[in-house]
Design a protein around this nucleic acid. Structure first.
Length: 453
RNA sequence: UCCUGAGUAGCUCAGCGGUAGAGCGGGUGGCUGUUAACCACUAGGUCGUAGGUUCGAACCCUACCUCAGGAGCCA
């Protein structure tokens, strides 16, 4: 198999007769030789290739512009100049694919907004190469976190007929022709179907069989949200645990965030250094702070009190029974706690039917984990396991039991206390990279009016 | 969806009523074990689209489109 630059650059000593491949970042010519910097995506660093002007292949140089792909045979030698440990003294250069002057990626910096318009080329840039290498490592770390604790990965359906109530607008999935008068019964599945907004309800069925499970997959929301924190298609991690109460749920959520922050610090040092230098100068300090400082927990009622006593004038009034606004959450996470904080026991009126009612009759065992800069990164709850209470909640929310019969069955047959949460994968990536727009941590972002690939 | 702001060369931007500019990128030449190299010359534009005001519009007005930031909703 061809060696990657990551492997070549890790060499302990000079090596004769190697072959390197990659895309040209820049070419600098001198009278005696040309310097090419190539990258192949395997790591942040590139390899400097030195091509002696006397070599026959030197006549290729005018055609080797930024973006071209090349293959080089030569010797890996210690670089006599500052800037790199190793360089490749070329013997033969083959131009695999030319890139002409219209290649959009220049040696100078580009705005993320421009790079979003060329999502097929932006992974070749420093910023996006780093983002997507981190995305892959974080994805693996998530599986590790759960698998190390004996959780089972469950593949919940992408197409579903159940609306995880309260989770937002749905994308319809149909094979019926547009404008058709056909009834839903005549559609492919014989009923209306949608892209999933959450695997939670199906996840609960597996938690009530395998114990501790998690899902990690794409979810879809047809909300007309135009913000830096929302996408119509995003990835979500949803663990669901039998015999967990809300406190255990919060403990796992905190451990989950910490584990991933630690993975970022330990497994992505090159990328972290780049983000800290060019994206967010406080990133490394904030991530380290996240590991050392215990996460705080504040009940919703305490949160409302501290907001009222803060002396701050908020644009939206602080009222017990209403949802916390972005400005309220930001104040709590960024100014009051100055770190990650979990807010729990929300008013039952503003939360979905499946959350467990607390004994006060006014709140449910729900929790949101907020991080500075991003806001809500995790939302979860203990689920209502009592058959009669769940039925009453469904009736109150105007849901028919017939539509959720399988879900209610979990409470009818061997019901157990259980809890879970959902973590937005992209929001986690924003937190660990410092990248401020969700569109820049997804390979191909889907937002309202935008799905060009 | 609402509020605010922005659309000028391939990219980043300046120009804000009177002949369309710079840097980078491209081309040509020079110089140099170079490091987003450097120096000189050069090519490159229906100023987002459509109307309007004006002797004259990139600039002022209207509508629309697109993008960004903030808000709502949420992960």
């Amino acid at each position: 198999m061809p060696e990657t630059l990551r492997q070549l650059l890790a060499s302990e000593s000079a090596v004769t007769s190697i072959t390197a491949r990659g895309w040209v970042r820049t070419r600098r010519d001198s009278k005696a030789c040309s310097f090419l910097e190539i990258t192949d995506g395997s790591c942040f660093k590139g390899l400097q290739v030195v091509v002696d002007a006397a070599l026959p292949c030197a006549e290729l140089m005018p055609r080797i512009l930024t973006g071209a792909s090349i293959e080089v045979d030569g010797d890996l030698v210690a670089s006599p100049a500052a800037g790199q440990k190793w360089e490749l003294q070329a013997r033969e250069v083959r131009l695999l694919g030319e890139a002409d002057a219209t290649y959009p990626l220049q040696k100078k910096g580009h705005t993320p907004e421009f790079l979003r318009t060329i999502s097929h080329l932006r992974p070749r840039t420093n910023l996006f190469g780093n983002v997507f290498r981190v995305r892959s490592r974080m994805s693996f770390a998530i599986h590790r976190f759960f698998q190390e604790q004996g959780f089972f990965h469950v593949h919940t359906p992408v197409i579903t007929s159940s609306d995880c109530e309260g989770a937002g607008e749905l994308f319809r999935v149909t094979t019926l022709k547009q404008g058709s008068n056909a009834k839903p019964e005549e559609d492919f599945f014989g009923r209306p179907t949608y892209l999933t907004v959450s695997g939670q309800l199906q996840g609960e069925t597996f938690a009530c069989a395998l114990g501790n499970i998690y899902t990690f997959g794409p979810t879809f929301r047809a909300e007309n949200s135009n913000t830096a924190r929302h996408a119509a298609e995003f990835w979500m991690i949803e663990p669901e645990m039998a015999f967990y109460d809300l406190a255990a749920d919060m403990t796992l959520a905190e451990a989950n965030v910490r584990y991933l922050v630690k993975a970022m610090l330990e497994e992505c040092p090159e990328e972290l250094e780049f983000f800290n230098k060019f994206v967010d100068k406080d990133l490394t300090a904030r991530l380290q702070h996240t590991l050392t400082k215990p996460f705080e927990r504040i009940s919703y009622t305490e949160a409302v009190d501290l907001l009222l006593k803060s002396g701050r004038s908020f644009e939206h009034p602080v009222v017990w029974g209403e949802g916390l606004q972005t400005e309220h959450e930001r104040y709590i996470a960024e100014e009051h706690v100055k770190g990650p904080v979990t807010i729990y026991n929300y008013p039952k009126a503003i939360k979905p039917f499946y959350m467990r009612q607390n004994d006060d009759g006014k709140t449910v065992a729900a929790m949101d984990l907020l991080v500075p800069g991003i806001g809500e990164i995790i939302g979860g709850s203990q689920r209502e396991e009592r058959l009669d209470v769940l039925r009453a909640a469904m009736e109150h929310h105007g849901l028919s039991e017939a539509d959720y019969q399988w879900y209610v069955d979990l409470r009818r047959y061997g019901s157990v206390p259980h809890a879970g949460y959902g973590m937005g994968f992209e929001r986690l990536l924003m937190f660990v990279t410092g990248v401020s727009n969700i569109r820049d941590v997804i390979p191909f972002a889907r937002t309202p009016g935008h799905a060009p690939y």
